[in-house]
């Protein structure tokens, strides 16, 4: 391995991994169990996993078509569309949360109508958590999938058309399977981002145990009063996300690998 690559790679790895080691070192191992078995921990973890997974599903349903439009269609203003859908990447999540209020809040453009017509409000519900996470995480999926679509050979779609497949059939039976690894990578990225989402969630969904308090919110609040507990919660979040990612990775690698 060439040194100019090896040295920065090692430094970079250390930079990324050492803070995690710091968490492990400072963890209160002696009273880990009582901290872990607090009902609030399980509650927050369940809510986190549920909402991140739902946010990923919503992102798949809405984000893959966006990526397709960006990569394949010839409509005007695609670059504007791309810039718009990636705005949440650069927007501070708290601002994203406020923006969601302005649209979906009780006083928001759509939210007011929902409130007045159905007496239904989105903020401070689990739905709001999923919406906030989707808002922040979907751009990661869109960008990944668009990249995969651009990298995929569009002539396969021509071939499908000459075999009688309309664009929807082509998308389902050819395009999507071809970019499946890219979609999977995007979904993982999206899920991870949703799992760690804090700013937009606490702003738009608020913080209430069992309904809207996800792990990052629990960690942040624990930090105010019980730093040890915050470290434990962080480790739980860390462990669960690492385990999930490794598990999924193995499965996908196993499926997409081509025996030679």
């Amino acid at each position: 391995m060439p040194l100019p690559l090896l040295v920065p790679a090692l430094l970079g790895t250390a930079f990324l991994v050492l803070p995690l080691l710091g968490l492990l070192v400072r963890a209160p191992w002696s009273n880990l169990w009582p901290q872990l078995t607090q009902p609030a921990v399980g509650q927050a973890l369940r809510l986190s996993l549920l909402s991140a997974t739902l946010a990923t599903l919503v992102s798949l349903v809405l984000g893959v078509p966006i990526a397709w439009v960006l990569a394949r269609s010839t409509i005007r203003g695609r670059s504007v569309l791309r810039a718009l859908v990636t705005v949440p990447l650069v927007l501070p999540p708290v601002v994203g949360g406020v923006a969601l209020f302005l649209v979906l809040g009780r006083q928001g453009i759509l939210g007011r109508w929902l409130y007045e017509t159905f007496d239904y409000t989105i903020p401070f519900t689990t739905t709001a958590v999923v919406i906030a996470e989707t808002f922040v995480a979907m751009p990661f999926l869109v960008i990944s999938v668009e990249g995969a679509l651009r990298a995929a050979d569009a002539r396969f779609e021509d071939a499908a058309a000459t075999l009688g497949a309309d664009r929807w059939t082509t998308f389902r039976r050819v395009t999507l399977p071809l970019v499946a690894p890219g979609v999977a990578a995007g979904a993982v990225l999206c899920w991870a981002r949703a799992l760690g989402e804090f700013g937009a969630t606490i702003t738009f969904a608020g913080n209430f145990p069992g309904t809207t308090q996800t792990m990052p919110l629990a960690v942040y609040l624990a930090l105010q009063s019980n730093p040890e507990g915050a470290i434990v919660l962080s480790l739980v979040l860390l462990f669960v996300s690492l385990a999930t990612l490794l598990l999924l990775r193995d499965r996908w690698l196993g499926r997409s690998a081509v025996p030679s």
Binding site: R155, D158, A159, A160, T162, L163, G164, V174, L178
Partner: peptide, 15 residues
């Protein structure tokens, strides 16, 4: 996709 035709491409393009 509505034309009854078959096409063979240079680098086969098998899915």
């Amino acid at each position: 996709h509505e034309r009854p035709l078959g096409m063979v491409f240079q680098d086969h393009l098998l899915f």
